[in-house]
């Protein structure tokens, strides 16, 4: 037996079983981003509200989900909750865990994006008699969104890789299916080389998308925006390691 068989690695790369795992990984990521953004925006709104109870609840949520490993969250949802009589399918467990976790990170990104838009922008909008909705939709949101893109991109990148933790609760995504192939054929390096290649492709594609987004939304007043972005307290949340 050779040390490493490139042809075997290539054949794993084109293995139909593994490819379906890649689709599950993509599906988990997309669903967690969409769900996480919706929930995260809600939490960010609560966190910014002047009601101390609501703001406190949101702060607790963020503190809790960012302060505990995603792995524990998944395991508790999968094996812990049934003890209380709450039972979901495997894939639902994974989605609930990923969305709850991602929402905490995204809430901080959304919030810091809005905080970084200067008060002067809102004041100018009021002075011009713009309605609250127009002020939000045309003045605050586009500027906040532009500041959110880089940390949002980072967060999605790490989420993409964090979906591999769902393998622990037996979701058959890319990591889990690699494990299964490996146990069947014992070609450890070959199987994981294929899996690694897929993760690299996925993160690289996302990087390219992110760069396009940044370019598209950063088209105006580039110099000025960069200064604003550099000084903005945009969340480092997403850069922190997970798992």
């Amino acid at each position: 037996m050779s040390l490493f068989s490139p042809t075997a690695a290539v054949s794993y790369f084109f293995n139909y079983f593994l490819m379906k795992g890649v689709l599950v990984t993509i599906g988990l990521t997309v669903a967690a981003v969409v769900g996480g953004l919706i929930l995260g925006m809600g939490i960010a709104l609560l966190r910014m509200s002047s009601n101390p109870v609501l703001a406190g609840a949101a702060r607790f949520y963020i503190w809790f989900f960012r302060g505990t490993p995603l792995l524990i969250q998944l395991v508790v949802i999968y094996s812990g909750l049934p003890q209380l009589g709450i039972k979901f399918s495997v894939i639902t467990c994974a989605l609930v865990g990923l969305i709850l976790n991602e929402a905490a990170y995204l809430a901080e990104i959304v919030r810091s994006g809005f905080m970084a838009v200067s008060a002067g922008q809102r004041e100018a909008a009021w002075a011009l008699s713009l309605s609250p909705w127009v002020t939000f939709r045309r003045v605050t949101l586009p500027q906040a969104f532009r500041l959110m893109i880089p940390p949002l991109g980072n967060s999605i990148n790490s989420l993409l890789k964090a979906t591999s933790l769902a393998s622990v609760i037996s979701v058959e995504e890319l990591m889990r299916r690699s494990d299964m192939l490996m146990q069947e054929h014992f070609q450890i390096l070959e199987v994981y080389a294929a899996a690694t290649a897929y993760y690299l492709i996925l993160t690289s594609v996302w990087d390219a998308v992110q760069r396009r987004l940044e370019k598209h939304f950063g088209r105006s007043s580039a110099a000025k925006t960069r200064r604003v972005a550099a000084s903005a307290p945009v969340a480092q949340a997403s850069v922190e390691a997970r798992a």
Partner: peptide, 19 residues
Amino acid sequence: NLFPHMTVLENCTLAPMTA
């Protein structure tokens, strides 16, 4: 406090159009 993501013209037309 100009709106940095809008052109000069858009800065000037936003309020007359929406308000």
